[in-house]
Amino acid sequence: MGFQLILDGEEHDVAIVRRRPHLVLRIDGIEHEFSEIGGPGDGLHALKSGKHPIDFIRASDNERQIIRLGGRTFEVDHIDPFSEGMESGGNKDAVRSPMPGTVVSIQCKEGDTVVRGTPLVTIESMKLQTVLSAMREGTVAEILRVEGETFEKDAIIVMLEPETEKA
């Protein structure tokens, strides 16, 4: 069984094939041998596959590795099959902000029935106002922010009632 990593929004599969004499990884079905794997943890490391070592910088942030390689920075996320299951349930009901910002105004109240596209909250980020709307039909369960409140990227602003099985 391999590990699922996400790079640039795409899922990739990485598995250990052999550890000795050199590490061999199967990456998206293709085997790569590494004669050097660099040290553990964050910082400057070198990887060697083939003749030339490749320098890179790595920093970890929970289930994310940030890699700077060839003058570019990449974020690689690990999909944890267990927590993913938990998340997807929550994700369906949470209206998140795609960027950090401030709540300008709230256009809904708890208990409101909404349809897909109903404006819920207006936020401002970088002098730009954006309306967050309902992503599906449902009922507003909770509004987690008040007007004027600031929040981080991906913060949950509004929760909808969990979807019930349609009879």
């Binding site: 990593l5 990485v14 794997i37």
Partner: peptide, 12 residues
């Protein structure tokens, strides 16, 4: 892509 994924993989 393989280099980046390997570098990340080795960081966990």
């Amino acid at each position: 892509r393989a280099q980046i994924l390997a570098a990340a993989f080795l960081g966990f």
